[in-house]
Amino acid sequence: MSLHYASNDWYPVADAACLARGPRKTRLLGTDLEVLGPFDHPVVTDMGGRCFPVQVRYNHLWTTIGDDPRPLFDIPEADEPGRRHVPCGVVRVKCSPLRAVENFLDIAHFPFVHTGILGAEPHTEVAAYKAEIREDVDEVWATNISFYQPQAAKSAAGGITTRYEYRVPAPTAAVLYKTCPPRPEAMDVIAIFVQPRSETDCDVWPWMALYDDTTNFADLAQFQQEIFLQDRSILENQRPVKLPLDPKLEIPTRADMTSIAYRRWLKRRGAYYGALTDQT
């Protein structure tokens, strides 16, 4: 049941850089796939030769293995002029795809896991913010978040209090809007697109759309890779591996409002792939 629900979403399976090196053998929701380039005319098949639909969005190649796929979510900022799109490659993590998303929605870990970059003691307090399931769009949103950050972005010159908003448009994708140091009136967009290889193993594709024309690509991509690799050792050490949806199994606080909303939203959608439920 959980696999059936998950199979009707779209997932990233390649980017231009990886297809330029040759075909990519990969796995999606337990199904072995082969992705053949070129990036603008790709083919995705399983080992039996069955072809799956493809589309190129947000610098990634997306596919779905379901019979009745829901549309791929829209990130309207992707089309805004002046934004630089930065695909950051792919990182493999032995964790539930849902734990990877939940960690991305969490700010309280910044001082301990991203020390000196996204947070630092003694600035550990998480002020009250708003987290909700927006019924009109059926998405999780968290707004009115602010947090002190020693180096919020590659373009930041020093510590600033950063404003954050989070959006969860699909169970395995999350979008962050945060203060853009060179353009205080605008928001940078940072996303993670998770490719669930199985319920406990995933490939994560970080992606950014920034207002930053000066920093070179390598610096931008490495900033994001550094952050994500700091999270990786956390994600591989959470137990149970699957995300518990029963509120009694893990203890949240006010700082975890986004995670509470995310888990509730997963539960009511029946998005159980990677989750620990009564059924699993």
Partner: peptide, 20 residues
């Protein structure tokens, strides 16, 4: 390491940095 929650020797949580 994740969120810095402190547990004293009795096992009881004594400090949550997000809510000092």
């Amino acid at each position: 390491l994740y969120h810095g929650w402190h547990y004293e020797q009795s096992g009881r949580c004594s400090y949550i940095p997000a809510h000092p």
